[in-house]
Amino acid sequence: MRYLVALIVIFIPLSVFAAIDTFEFKDDATRERFNELTFELRCPKCQNQNLQDSNSPIAADLRNEVYKMVQDGKDNNEIKDFLVARYGEFVLYNPPVNETTYILWYGPFGLVVIGIIVLIAVSRKRKRSDQEDDSETHLNNDEAERLNDILGKGEQK
């Protein structure tokens, strides 16, 4: 019983976040498509929410438009084009690859490549300097003698 109450308490607040509309779909595929689109389209007013989550009036209007279009059997691209023509590419959470978004799509790969180059350069350098350092860390005969001398003096005292 206690567990049941705990579960209810945990899950009730979650359901409050979703905006509630009562749309009736002609079939399940259409409902699926509507959910997919409203999940992928961004609300122009509230910036960091998609159409599905947002409670703003404009999001409700756009959900309505998307609903009308899916019911009319328009395909996903037509619906996206409709919104992009009015609100710009901003509304797409999944932006298309074009000149303005090259940096967005390929930037991370560029950074990885730069990282790998730096990594290789650094490790090569370290290897080389390790070899060079051998001559510096190993004492030659003169130095060894002087060291023994100094240490020897310390022991005598």
Partner: peptide, 12 residues
């Protein structure tokens, strides 16, 4: 109805 607003891309 906000139909012209929608066509103009009004969001607030």
């Amino acid at each position: 109805k906000g139909s012209l607003g929608l066509d103009l891309g009004v969001y607030g």
